[in-house]
Amino acid sequence: MGAMRLAVLDVGSNTVHLLVVDAHRGARPLPASSYKSDLHLAEHLSDDGNIDDAGADALVSAIKSSLTVAEGQGTEDMMAFATSALREAPNGPGLLERVHRETGVDLEVLTGRDEARLTFLAVRRWFGWSAGRLLVLDIGGGSLEIALGIDEEPALTESLPLGAGRLTRDRLPGDPPTKDDVKALRKYIRTELGRILRPFRAGGAPDHAVATSKTFRQLARITGSPPSSEGLMVARTLSAADLDVWVPRLAEMSTAQRAQLPGVSPARAPQLLAGALVAQATMDLFGLETLTICPWALREGIILRRLDWIEGS
């Protein structure tokens, strides 16, 4: 078959992100265009975990405007999916219905393990078979995904409720947070990770430890990696030593002060500390000295899986 334009719509905890791709046999999934709306669903949760009306309205309107953009770009098909924010809200199913009713879009809710698998696929394709046994880490707004394996399909996957947005909202109320809150969060993260560590440690040391997600990219940036303006192809890494000296500094900074840092938007500044604590704990407990940043993640994984189907048909 010839080329077609595909779109992926990703409803995350922080943003609704539309990616339009020219898809054909053997194509590499580089975006033809990309469109983002800030959503911050985490800030629209009521005490019982439901997404409130304002959050629901914002979601519907973000999807509507994404649809307009996708149609304007000549998209033939759109895959729409949602991650932890909608997965965990008790009123999530009702919201999906409302989205379908008002926009016609069927949002597929991915499980944490699906997220981990698809992200792993994208990372495997980016680095190739020469990367050997891959460990892939992704810190989202709601959850931390971990995957390990030597194939395209990971042998082990895990999804923990350690997303940077969720932890900030639930456990770091102050600005800057109190020392006790930071200490308690550090302990909580390490306890949660400690519970799932064993099979990963038994699965063999990774040849290549890889990180995806905005949180890891921001941490790599403030510790000296090239800015996004230098493109996808330049090497970016994050070292455990750098995180160790940065975490105490981030802990002392207010949100406004963190927003002074390069690559940290005011919208993302609140979650940076929690994200850094998760990154530091994960590197510590998995015994990783360096992470390589991979520019592809979940959205690319979804496109790659879809392209595989085109090829097979």
């Binding site: 510790t223 070292s239 030593a241 750098d242 160790d244 000296v245 975490v247 105490p248 500094r249």
Partner: peptide
């Protein structure tokens, strides 16, 4: 910068 016995 130093922390936890490391220096960068």
């Amino acid at each position: 910068w130093r922390a936890r016995g490391r220096e960068v």
